[in-house]
Design a binder for these strands. Sequence first.
DNA 1: CCCTG
DNA 2: TATCGGAATCAGGG
DNA 3: CCCTG
DNA 4: TATCGGAATCAGGG
Lengths: 257, 257
Amino acid sequence: MADPNSADMSSGVKRNALSVLMASAKKPKPGPIETLHKSTQGSYSFRDALAPLIQNPDNFVKSGEVMKYTEDYVLIHDKYPKASVHLLILPRESTRTRLHPFQALCPHVSKITGTKDFYDRMSEIVRECEDVAIRELKDLYKKTFTAEDLKVGVHSAPSMSNLHIHVISVDNYSEKLKNKKHYNTFNTPFFVSFDELGTMTREDARIKGGPMYCAQIASNNDLICWRCEKNFQNQFKKLKDHLEEEFILWKREKAGI
Amino acid sequence: MADPNSADMSSGVKRNALSVLMASAKKPKPGPIETLHKSTQGSYSFRDALAPLIQNPDNFVKSGEVMKYTEDYVLIHDKYPKASVHLLILPRESTRTRLHPFQALCPHVSKITGTKDFYDRMSEIVRECEDVAIRELKDLYKKTFTAEDLKVGVHSAPSMSNLHIHVISVDNYSEKLKNKKHYNTFNTPFFVSFDELGTMTREDARIKGGPMYCAQIASNNDLICWRCEKNFQNQFKKLKDHLEEEFILWKREKAGI
DNA sequence: CCCTG
DNA sequence: TATCGGAATCAGGG
DNA sequence: CCCTG
DNA sequence: TATCGGAATCAGGG
Ligand SMILES: Nc1ncnc2c1ncn2[C@@H]1O[C@H](COP(=O)(O)O)[C@@H](O)[C@H]1O
Ligand SMILES: Nc1ncnc2c1ncn2[C@@H]1O[C@H](COP(=O)(O)O)[C@@H](O)[C@H]1O
């Protein structure tokens, strides 16, 4: 895109929408909504990188990748954490792991049965995993944190095929946060909180899952500090520097343990 | 610019034109046409880098920068040659050196008197300098070259303030050729040949000297091989590799000395 | 998703 | 990822 | 114009 | 600037 700030916004959007639609016409890429990344032909791809963790979590306990697991889920450290604490909840249910998160988790959206029950069970798990993340923050910084310091939810257009729920601290302080899209996927409506999933309607899902909505939101939005709301436009480097300052202030304001 | 190949060309052009006009409204940058880079406030800038060579050519003979000079002109090696031979003719006439080349050189465009005479005198000098360039090619490659292997002319929006005429071999084979604009300033109508200058009308000059025409042409045009006309779009690196092949073929077809 | 050019 | 500041965007491929 | 980020 | 291939675009500053 060019001149995001200049002149005719509608024309810019239009061109962008067009190219997005054409792109999705060509290749069945991340394909928002419905079943994710149709796994035709057994050829493995980077999109399946989470599968081994679900299949055989025990293999990844020693390395620290897997923090805990039950019959129902695996809790892991995100391999490329976009904040000082960044965990992923991987539900193990084979009928849902390949579904788009809206289909797998939203009671009012899903076309398969039992989704309300599944969502409620996941709510319990989410609470447990939040506690793990909060403890991790406490151990790291010797301060008191709460669920308010976390975001829990999914990306409206995931790149990884296996169902996963992000549990991420709000700071976004991480060397793996390397570009604008990284930041915006957690700080725009591209990120859909677990709570939202519970109430989302099919119309909501249709819009948020739409290809051009997804493509637009993560890279076409200005960079806004999560804490002070300062606008950094496209200046990612400056945002990064700023995030360090906010990180320090954020920790400082927490009560000691 | 975005999606140069896609959708609505005219809208692209329009946006671009707008931004160009706004830019020129802000700062009196290279200001196409008329007197170049109004030298208000004696603050020197990179635009004046050719001035010392005109003022005191003798200082630059030993270093090889100046090849020859007379009362009327200085012939130098371009410091950042965009081809295997790239010379600049610097007319020394003080009343013209700060003018836009169209004003300084075009008999039908210039608003000052004596331009026809000046152009005719420069024609003689151009012929002499072409001979120097041809000899340089011969010495380099031990082959026979002609004026057909050279381009002589000016940029429609020069960056350097002092009047200068490029004498450049057609090959564009040089490590200093580093981007699309470099190539296109010698291979699109942005480059105005010395012959054209002799016949150009004021209307021609108005168009070619217009800010958006200049901005457009050098960076919005596809990269086309000067020799085989293959289109490389924006793939400068591939053009560079190709230019090496063409360079070899070009030399090879020349008669031995 | 990531990395590299 | 201090100490003044000094990249963003995108195609290709795994 | 050039270089750097 | 070989030998298979692997950047383009842009703002800022001198
Ligand atoms: N092999 C891996 N192990 C753990 N996490 C991963 C791995 N590969 C990618 N990720 C993370 O998975 C997440 C997928 O993001 P998304 O599909 O956009 O929801 C990203 O945060 C990645 O950092
Ligand atoms: N100090 C210099 N000595 C010699 N040539 C130069 C110097 N600085 C820039 N140039 C060349 O001057 C030319 C000016 O181009 P333009 O103003 O676009 O016609 C370019 O080809 C530069 O490589």
